[in-house]
Design a protein around this nucleic acid. Structure first.
Lengths: 184, 184
DNA sequence: ACGGAGTTTGAGTGATAACTCTAATTTGAA
DNA sequence: TTCAAATTAGAGTTATCACTCAAACTCCGT
């Protein structure tokens, strides 16, 4: 992958893989499907990726980064902003959201590496939410528990969005936010 | 399936399917594996089930029904009982819970039939939660919205349990229940 | 324009999946 | 006891999967 052609092909494969995961799920994302749609033969695919899994992990990493509302960790965000960021992600990029959820479910049985990646990312998000809750006056141990409940519940919202594209993400997300901010 | 032999074989197949899902996950639960372990030939399997999917759905449905606080739908269940039932399902049968979530996500991409089934099941659950909330004094339109938020958030809890087997399902589920019951 | 490295081709491999089919056997109601 | 229906056997079918490979072709620094 040092020539222009290889880099372009690689990009086309990744884009196709992402679209296929969103449309067909992990199960429907086969080498044949990727290659047909990307206009590439299996030999080329395996020249650029050592396995199908490697391509999928690459796509998933992108999806996970896309969920991050504040990649620079400035630490000035409010819980409302964090929730808004997630809502925006879900509504603007439902395909990536679908990948993120689908991966958590199907991909985690055999693949410890992938599983660890998702869990670490989840913990990072919870920490960010917890910090924001503390800044809003909720004491530490309680803030952490509420953050974990909130992030988990928001993932439930994402899960349902995968099932029902017309699901009212914003209303439910705001309700969950309100619950997290309520005084004990 | 009218003779004793058929009923017994069916039971053995379902039990084996349940065990295999727990031990090997959905991916490792093949017709061959089921048949080998149940001491049955594929012909017999397909005499009793029209597809592998039917057997799996049956197993999952049985597990969910097994913890139903009001199996006859007499309308006597409280929201607390409904939440408890789901928590029990998640903690007692985490592997089936994983399949349940997995069916909702991956299984419903191509399979319109399955997708409809999952959505209908979700709607039924929301309706029961909403009825229970009304019985507890929360007015109708609000009760429905809260029920939907609660059920969705609980699915988020289930989703996270798939990722992290040590996740404290009960604490978070109770927190979500408390939020749903709070006065407006 | 040379030539080694990068890229592409596409038929092919071997494994394994879900599922079918027909004939033989067993069941249980009358 | 009889016999139609239920059940079972198990080899076979069809499909599809991830992946390979040797040969041809393209790129680009020199």
């Amino acid at each position: 992958m040092r020539y222009r052609a290889g880099i372009e092909t690689r990009g086309r494969i990744l884009e196709t893989t992402r679209a296929l995961i969103a449309e067909e799920g992990l199960e429907g994302t086969t080498i044949k499907a990727i290659c047909d749609r990307a206009g590439v033969r299996p030999g080329s695919f395996y020249n650029l990726f050592k396995s199908k899994e490697e391509a999928i992990i690459t796509v998933v990493r992108e999806a996970i980064n896309a969920v991050d509302p504040d990649p620079d960790h400035r630490g000035t965000d409010t819980v409302g902003e964090l929730v808004d960021a997630y809502v925006r992600f879900l509504t603007d990029q439902p395909d990536l959201a679908s990948v993120y959820i689908g991966l958590a479910v199907s991909g985690s049985k055999n693949n410890t590496d992938l599983k660890g990646r998702v869990i670490r990312h989840h913990e990072g998000r919870v920490a960010r939410f917890a910090d924001a809750l503390v800044r809003e006056g909720i004491p530490e141990p309680e803030a952490n528990r509420r953050a974990e409940t909130l992030v988990t519940a928001l993932n439930g919202v994402a899960l349902h969005l995968v099932l029902d594209a017309s699901f009212d993400v914003e209303t439910h997300a705001r309700a969950l936010l309100g619950d997290a901010l309520e005084p004990a």
